[in-house]
Design a protein around this nucleic acid. Structure first.
Lengths: 343, 343
DNA sequence: CTGTTAGCGCGTTCAC
DNA sequence: GTGAACGCGCTAACAG
């Protein structure tokens, strides 16, 4: 075993303040501030500037974010609040992209994953004073008010299963369902099933995706999709498949909420000796790393997290700057169908 | 489509301060502070207390965390810094547990996922002034110094592939490797392979796990494990399997870094028509949701994230309180072998 | 016992 | 280039 943890008890280091830098450089605190922030319209001779910079360097000066936040009224942090849904590698990828994009704009992203079985929803935003809060679920009116009076400038809800009227779409997941349905219909399927995820926390996401499938079915003049909730075990998936096949007009293609559900379906099909895609086509969503490893390899809809991230960052920075966020984006750049063998 | 985003541009609300509450309640600011913090040795009559509380409620008072942090020198935030490795649902589960446990101790957890391709490693801790920083990778000396002089009291490295001497083990991943090896050796295998992950970011984790396998092999008087790096695609996995089978003393059991790598191996075996577990036994790690869905269902080592979380929180709070962190834990409570069919 | 006054912590920014 | 006030909550010292 090679793991270690390093801890230290007391923090002996006394904080280096701008006062110290000023003293060291032989100038006033304000000068230090001007130099370090490259304040416009404050011309400071290079000699002084250099002295200050060197003093700061020598002393290892780190400005106190608390003091700056106090003064400026908001920090340069963006807080993303996530429910404790079982997220996969997709979330990690997106978050890494967001971090990079925000960072280019001088903002730091941190994420708060809500606690498992917590009584009171905690108020991290109070601790952070973020400039903006991102969520993937609706925020109650008074919570939002509380955030605002705590200094949060921008509250962006990236997702809501409630209402499609207002605002600009951030992630049009309905499009995923559409693409799934379009693919299997183009392949000649006439009766479609939908495999819905079991965890309640996921249903906010599942709703829009399912809705997309429904829309396309209706546009194509087909029956609406037959929806089964499919937990992540082979037996349940097998039962769902039996159900679909026993319908008066049997289902021949299933759109799964995501690739994990699709993998469960594949396992269930094997249990029931149902051939995929021969007897039943299956299409997933997300294109997780193991999707290509399934037997048969999973056809799925891939999400381009890097363009998603860029979009989110644009919206947030626009809002922070007091401008109108950009209009809804072209979803074509966001999702692509990855055709493999399962459908 | 039903997705919406809600944004608001300007923050019109002026901040409610303790001054406002004091005015509203007809008392001094300090009194407000005493009431709200339930300061010991300051007895305040219920009548006054109630007035203050109600005034605060009525005004929707939220103390400025920035001001408090400035005064106290540190916030009640714990920052967990994660590399952008492709983490699975395990990470989400652990983080949710950590959030809940820290919350019981009055601490808020936020996570920073490092950016994808970032030039300068960003210094989120400067923006947050966390009381503690958690990482799963070693922290350079001067980074740690910088953190400390920025007010961070406790830096806990949960993981290091470097050195096993100092400190108390937080997550003894070597034990995972041990358990994998012990399982297959008990099943009669004499020559073991190790499937190493490809992403460089994962190698910090893989090292200790592999080391555990090595140790057990050596203790059992076997040859050391034959190590192959196995990317997540069936063809590469198939090649690795061919390699193992072509060895003078062929490998009959493979310990995989994690369940995803194990799934790749299963896909590769199918490609090469190698029977699992008949011709090759495979054991994974992490017990991800889809592990049971594989064909054959994956034998794996499960990590108990809730006890892991508890342990981490204990260590951090002890360190923050200036006490010695508790001794190394009993790993038996942390890992359990989940025997299915692949090994 | 109840509550007030005063000053600190630290960076920012306006007026000179 | 400087002095000083400000943003806001905490808490020691002190008065009624």
């Amino acid at each position: 075993m090679r793991e270690v943890s390093e801890t230290v008890s007391a923090n002996t280091q006394k904080r280096v303040t701008s006062q110290d830098v000023a003293r060291e450089a032989g100038v006033a605190r304000s000068t230090v501030s001007y130099v370090l922030n490259r304040t416009p319209h404050q011309t400071i001779p290079d000699s002084t500037r250099k002295r200050v910079l060197q003093a700061a360097e020598r002393l290892g000066y780190t400005p106190s974010s608390a003091a700056r936040t106090l003064r400026r009224g908001r920090s340069d942090v963006v807080l993303c609040i996530l429910r404790a849904w079982p997220f996969g590698s997709a979330a990690g990828t997106l978050l890494a992209e967001l971090t990079a994009s925000f960072s280019e704009r001088g903002l730091s992203l941190v994420t708060h994953i809500e606690g498992a079985g917590m009584k009171t929803p905690d108020k991290v935003w109070q601790e952070i004073s973020p400039a903006a809060v991102l969520t993937y679920h609706p925020v109650p009116r008074d919570t939002e008010r509380a955030m605002r009076s705590a200094g949060v400038q921008s509250v962006v809800v990236l997702f809501s299963a409630e209402n499609e009227t207002a605002g600009n779409l951030i992630r049009p997941d309905g499009r995923i369902g559409r693409m799934q349905a379009e693919h299997v219909i183009a392949a000649g399927h006439q009766r479609i099933g939908y495999a819905y995820p079991e965890p309640p926390a996921l249903q906010d996401f599942a709703g829009p995706r399912l809705q997309g499938v429904k829309t396309v079915c209706s546009e194509a003049g087909l029956l609406p999709p037959d929806v089964c909730t499919v937990p992540l075990d082979a037996q349940s998936a097998s039962n769902a498949i039996k159900h679909w096949q026993s319908l008066p007009q049997p289902v021949t293609a299933v759109c799964a909420y995501n690739d994990e559900v699709a993998q469960a379906l594949i396992a269930g099909a094997r249990l029931s000796r149902v051939d995929i895609p021969g007897e039943l086509a299956i299409i997933g969503a997300d294109d997780i790393p193991t999707a290509a490893l399934a037997t048969p390899p999973l056809t799925t809809i891939r999400i381009d997290h890097i363009s998603e991230a860029r979009r989110i960052v644009d919206t947030v920075t626009a809002t922070l700057a007091g401008k109108e966020p950009p209009a809804s984006w072209d979803t074509a750049e966001l999702f692509t169908a990855v055709i493999r063998e399962s459908a």
